[in-house]
């Protein structure tokens, strides 16, 4: 997991500085700093409303943010400073930046009118502009990787929740993003389907994929992460390696959170 990151510790892949986000008067992120090296797996934990998902969604501009900066692979995401003023990037640039990250959602969000294969090839054809044969080959490779090649011509409605989520992960990862975002990808699944999805993610982590996750699966977070970040009321309350954080929490809130969490 972490041997890749040692090669490039000069510049972090993701560098978030002073991130602030408001919904009207409600401040949900109150100055968040977080940086990730290439090959890192970082998991955000915390109670609901602590800002984990919002933080994740800011990284690919599914949420606008009002302050701070997100730098991904040397590029400023969402906004740039022009003559001292903060200017939103044009849509085209934002679309390009979004393609640098892959995202898997809690509700899968597969395109119901396209087959599993077409779900994966859409981005390859229209964003990456690959030739049809290349796109299909790549999509098949990733569907095989998530164990669903034989379901390539099935529509999402014909797949189980776990299978849909695996197709959604294949769709995101086939785009070859430099960072994968996982937003509570197992929360909407029946308990017996959680394992198959977590195994796919674990496999990606072992391959050295850089990942930022939000999850309630603490055991999984413990096993897969290089760093765990505990968020509380829009701030990072505590962060560190999983073992340290889970066994010797410094902040009383984290201790309280872990006490109330099922492992």
């Amino acid at each position: 997991m972490s041997d890749v990151s040692n090669l490039s510790n000069a510049q972090p892949l993701l560098d978030i500085r002073g991130l602030r986000k408001q919904y009207g008067p409600l401040e949900v992120l109150k100055g968040v700093d977080l940086s990730m090296q290439r090959g890192n797996v970082v998991t955000l934990i915390g109670s609901s409303g602590s800002g984990k998902t919002t933080l994740l969604r800011c990284v690919n501009m599914l949420e606008e943010f009002q302050g701070g900066q997100i730098v991904l692979d040397g590029e400023s995401i969402g906004y740039e400073e022009v003559g001292g003023k903060r200017v939103r990037h044009p849509e085209k640039v934002i679309a390009r930046h979004r393609a640098m990250t892959g995202m898997a959602f809690q509700q899968f969000n597969l395109f119901p009118h396209l087959t599993a294969l077409q779900n994966v090839t859409l981005g390859l054809l229209k964003v990456k502009k690959l030739h049809k044969d290349e796109a299909v080959a790549l999509a098949e490779k990733w569907l095989e990787r998530v164990g669903l090649l034989e379901r390539r011509d099935h529509f999402p409605g014909q797949l189980s929740g776990g299978q849909q989520q695996r197709v959604a992960i294949a769709r995101a990862i086939a785009m070859n993003p430099s960072l994968m975002l996982f937003d509570e990808v197992t929360s909407a699944l029946d308990p017996e389907l959680v394992g198959e999805v977590l195994n796919v993610i674990k496999g990606l982590a072992e391959d050295g994929m850089t990942m930022l996750l939000v999850t309630h699966e603490m055991r999984f977070a413990f096993e897969v992460s290089d760093k765990i970040v505990f968020m509380n009321q829009g701030r990072i309350e505590e962060q560190g390696p999983p073992k340290e954080l889970f066994e010797r929490p410094q902040s009383p809130r984290l201790a309280e959170f872990l006490k109330n969490t099922r492992f």
Binding site: L62, A95, R98, F105, F111
Partner: peptide
């Protein structure tokens, strides 16, 4: 989520 998933893979509006 349909619009969000489209944007997440880099499709323009």
């Amino acid at each position: 989520g349909q619009m969000e998933a489209s944007q997440a893979i880099g499709l323009t509006f």
